[in-house]
Design a protein around this nucleic acid. Sequence first.
DNA 1: CAGGTATATACTAATCTGGGTATATATAAG
DNA 2: CTTATATATACCCAGATTAGTATATACCTG
Lengths: 111, 111
Amino acid sequence: MSSSFVILAEPSRRAILRLLASSERSVSDLEQQLRLPQPSVSKHLRILREAGFVQARVDAQRRLYRLRPEPLMEVDAWLAPFRRFWTPHLDALERHLDRVDSKSRRRRKQR
Amino acid sequence: MSSSFVILAEPSRRAILRLLASSERSVSDLEQQLRLPQPSVSKHLRILREAGFVQARVDAQRRLYRLRPEPLMEVDAWLAPFRRFWTPHLDALERHLDRVDSKSRRRRKQR
DNA sequence: CAGGTATATACTAATCTGGGTATATATAAG
DNA sequence: CTTATATATACCCAGATTAGTATATACCTG
């Protein structure tokens, strides 16, 4: 199980994810959009699937792939400690997120 | 010139960046923190430097490395089209904050 | 069942990468 | 100038990865 960053290191895989960001797509659809040989697309999709980036559902002979956000969320979270380098007033932002979070906590039932 | 994602695919390099997120550090400092052989550290630093992730300044025999945010900002920007998957409405926002925030809370308490 | 379409997998060769070791360079200190 | 310290580079090797090609599997249609 490679890290999400290893998965994203491959340009074709990032391209696949970008396409899936807008909508669910079949293998042949991706193949045409990216002008990649079909086995390449299938191999990248397998890697993306095993890493949890995408999910397939069966539609007759086709497999329709759609995005799963979890691994990208982890990448997003990894970036968090670095955002203070390009986001002004991090303290204010943190206070803001804490407020939003505590509000939603209050609104929900206790965990 | 490899993409920023290729640079970040290497765990030791991500560890170096995390350490540099808190402060400037010398090579031997990184070497001890990460328990890596010195040539490994220097090699990774070279790759990080050439990709613009870090910058060195000379201090006697030592080289002090510090973070440069630009490449990480690009990664952050690449994630933008995907954020709607975990921040479209409040419920998803809550789930995201629950995961990310519990980590940062722990980190904050330790100080 | 036969033929066609869609997708997955197996296999190979070429390339790339990181670890390990040895060595080179730079600066300081005596 | 000599030695010590800090860092960088050169070189080789073993493992991993990708593209390319061929082939297998799954499902539909007639």
